[in-house]
Design a protein around this nucleic acid. Structure first.
Length: 129
DNA sequence: TTTCTGACA
DNA sequence: TGTCAGGA
């Protein structure tokens, strides 16, 4: 199960292939890199090389875009994902207290339900939301 | 030919 | 986000 993840992380696809696989323009793909949503490797000639994991992430980003979520919202999603990953790692050393659990569940509920202040929920208001 | 960075009638 | 320039 480790060999598989290794292959999916191998950056072997040039941007032209990624364009066809994701239906995104080179402009968009490079822009998402600037926004730190993907981190392609660079080959000897400074060409961006993407891995299958990058493809998945770009497809995910494209789906969010189709759902009407803006860049700020998408960045928010990944930033939170990272924060929670780090938080989870911390949990391994120090078990959560009951109050921690309640706080996390509350934040989770507010985020998913969209009941939080709109300043903290930068998603675009459209028919899908 | 393909991709890169920077820039904007 | 599209698109053009100018170089690799």
């Amino acid at each position: 199960m480790k060999e598989k993840e290794l292959r999916r992380s191998l950056a072997v696809l040039p941007i032209g292939t990624v364009m066809k696989l994701t239906n995104l323009t080179a402009r968009q793909i490079r822009y998402y890199e600037e926004q730190k949503l993907v981190k392609p490797e660079r080959n000897e000639g400074n060409r961006r090389m993407y891995s299958l994991n990058d493809i998945d992430r770009l497809l995910e980003i494209r789906d969010y875009l189709d759902e009407g979520i803006n860049m700020a919202g998408i960045k928010h999603i990944y930033i939170e994902k990272e924060r929670k990953r780090a938080a989870k790692k911390a949990q391994l050393d120090k078990p959560l207290t009951d109050s921690d659990v309640r706080r996390i569940l509350r934040d989770e509920f507010i985020s998913v339900s969209g009941l939080g202040k709109k300043e903290e929920f930068p998603f675009k208001h459209n028919k899908n939301l």
